[in-house]
Computed example of a mutant assay.
Amino acid sequence: MDNRSPIRDVEVRDDGIRLGQLLKLAGLVEHGAAAREVLEAGEVTVNGRPEARRGRQLGGGDVVALGEERVRVRIADAGS
């Protein structure tokens, strides 16, 4: 059984977002320095794989996890 929190969608504009920006937008970290710290510590995964690059480009459907929190990138509709 999977005891992790449900995945929460985070809507972004354009075609994607960088990992460090998403961590802040989703409220997983408070600021860029905190994003760098959790990435360097190996605490973040993207689609189930460890990721340490703050500038990693994410697209629609990518799932980012930090601890028990999981968020999925959702690209905003052009008309939104």
Rank of each mutant, 00 (worst) to 15 (best):
V10S: 10
D2S: 01
G27T: 13
K24A: 12
G27F: 13
E51V: 02
V12G: 03
G48L: 08
G67W: 02
G59D: 11
S5Y: 05
T45M: 06
D15Q: 10
A76E: 12
R13A: 04
G20V: 06
Q21F: 02
A33F: 12
D62S: 07
S5L: 09
E43A: 14
R56L: 14
G67N: 07
R13S: 06
E51P: 00
E11Q: 05
N47E: 14
R72D: 02
L66P: 11
R56H: 14
A78C: 05
V46G: 12
E69G: 04
N47Q: 05
R36W: 07
R54S: 15
G79D: 15
A78D: 11
G55Q: 15
D15E: 14
R56G: 12
G27V: 10
D9R: 07
V38H: 08
L58R: 05
K24W: 10
V44P: 01
E51C: 08
L66S: 15
R36A: 14
I17W: 03
L19H: 05
L39T: 15
S5Q: 10
R70N: 09
K24I: 14
A65N: 15
V10Y: 03
A26Q: 07
H31R: 05
R54G: 13
E37L: 13
G61S: 02
A65T: 08
D2M: 00
G16T: 05
A35I: 09
L23H: 12
G32V: 07
V73S: 00
D14H: 07
L28D: 08
G48I: 08
M1T: 00
Q57E: 15
R72F: 01
G59N: 11
E37M: 14
D77R: 11
L25F: 11
D9S: 01
V71R: 01
I7C: 00
T45Y: 05
R13N: 03
V44T: 10
L19C: 09
G60K: 00
E37N: 14
L66N: 13
V63S: 08
R13D: 09
Q57P: 09
G42V: 09
E40A: 12
E40T: 11
G61W: 00
E51N: 02
R4S: 04
I7H: 01
R49Q: 14
R53K: 13
A52T: 13
K24F: 09
A41K: 14
A52I: 11
G20Y: 03
K24P: 04
V71Q: 03
K24V: 13
G79Y: 13
R4F: 04
A26K: 07
R70E: 05
D62Y: 03
N47R: 05
R4I: 04
G16E: 14
S5R: 12
L28W: 08
E30P: 00
L22S: 03
K24N: 11
I17S: 10
G59S: 15
L66I: 15
R4Q: 06
P6R: 02
D9T: 01
G55S: 14
V38A: 13
R36G: 06
H31Q: 07
R74N: 09
L23T: 03
L39W: 15
I7S: 01
